[in-house]
Design a protein around this nucleic acid. Structure first.
Lengths: 239, 239
DNA sequence: CGCTGCTTTGAAGCCCTTCAAACCAGGTGG
DNA sequence: CCACCTGGTTTGAAGGGCTTCAAAGCAGCG
């Protein structure tokens, strides 16, 4: 059930059988959410965190004029809101972009892990710091990269992140979100994203169509985006 | 010595005397850095974290064409790189913007805290999650706010953050950084930042001059920026 | 007193937005 | 079975916010 999460952790550190068992003991039962379902709103008191088994989830913030910024995308094997364990309530919303399968992990259980499994606690801490690293890279994209680089960059990031959990090859992966949602990640209008996608397609780099990303030239795409996966911390370390 | 850090923590949770002592035991001796000094570069193996006692520090990423994006500013009482404890090396650089006084906290000591002081460990974990919340708010600024709102927003944020450690009033605070550095935070050119600052001054909201921020109309500034300090998690909670 | 780093201002141009409308595929109901 | 609706995609035209390029102004300092 939490296999993908373990894949993700084990790409970065060694997880003992005892720790694995502690994690398995921590998860509740499987819950299904439909697409376009906001399941966490800002300020809501939270006493569990949400581990994604299947589907795509977005963290986002709304502005008063109806604009929206997605601050991170989550895929299978990610905690969508592990940070709520220490924050207690969130400063942003969390919604599904596709039909989604999750398990809830009570904060009581996480607290127990911090008391009895300090190494595992550090690994969980690490995974929230990894989210922050992704935030930083998105800040760079939003602040300094132009539209086409920004778009290329997110396709590169998701190729790696989905690859870790076996959901992407070097040629393609499923990304069943709309151009509007992509625009909300990229700080662009959906109109412009549409034009950029056309450009990327005509350059023979990548195609985004029918909820799939088809990569014609991964090296070229990475070169255009100046993509360096270092911020995803794929090196195995003892945390 | 670590008074400002304790102020910051105690604005968010209760810290026992024993925990305070554990923190005091963890810090090394005081080190002084000059301004414009990069003291952490990406990939560098780190075995201590840096707690800021005085000065302004920036986390930033460089792009190949010489552009730079600052992803977060740090002030007295902040850890500039507590996340390096679990990450082991960083995906970004860290530099001083002003002359700076710091103490180093060995990761060995932090590890001991995770083993012997689980609550304090959760508080430290919280403070890295707070950094991530700041990253998210900057993503919103960079992605969706226009130049004047973005600029107003950062002035509001720093007023609150410096206020927590007693370094800002509602009317003013020291911010001895250049317009170029401000532009690197805001994802703008320094030329445009200069024009925006003029606009803010002429609107009677805020003045940035000689390394000081003078706030003429805090309410108006916050209204313009649509500033909501919820993302700074100033509510006291048991973590 | 001239250098240096930073700020300020002007003019021109471009990247992306805004506004508007057409297109297209899939699902529903008459 | 087709007409209709709906959500999403695509394209065009015009405009604006910010950048780029260039140069002058200004304060602090050796």
């Amino acid at each position: 059930m939490i296999e993908k999460y373990l894949m993700k952790l084990r790409a970065r550190d060694e997880i003992s059988h005892e720790e694995e068992q502690a994690l398995r003991d921590a998860v509740g039962e499987v819950v299904h959410y439909p697409a376009d379902h906001t399941f966490i709103v800002p300020g809501q008191r939270l006493n569990f965190s949400t581990l994604l088994l299947e589907g795509i989830v977005a963290r986002y913030k709304d502005l008063s004029d109806g604009q929206r910024q997605i601050t991170e995308l989550h895929v299978a094997g990610d905690f969508a809101d592990l940070h709520s364990f220490t924050l207690k309530h969130l400063d942003h919303s969390v919604m599904t972009l596709t039909p989604t399968k999750i398990v809830q992990v009570p904060h009581e259980k996480l607290k127990g892990i911090t008391e009895r499994h300090p190494h595992l606690a550090r690994v969980l801490w690490f995974s929230t710091n990894l989210d922050a690293a992704i935030h930083r890279e998105w800040e760079v994209s939003l602040g300094r990269r132009n539209a086409i680089q920004r778009t290329a960059h997110i396709f590169c990031e998701l190729q790696v992140r989905l690859g870790i959990v076996g959901l992407a090859s070097e040629q393609e992966y499923a990304l069943p979100i709309t151009q509007v949602e992509l625009a909300e990640c990229l700080g662009l209008t959906s109109v412009h994203v549409n034009r950029v996608l056309k450009d990327l397609r005509e350059r023979g780099l990548v195609e985004f169509r029918g909820g799939r990303v088809t990569i014609a030239d991964l090296a070229g795409l990475r070169r255009l985006a100046e993509f360096d996966p270092a911020y995803l911390y794929l090196d195995r370390q003892s945390r």
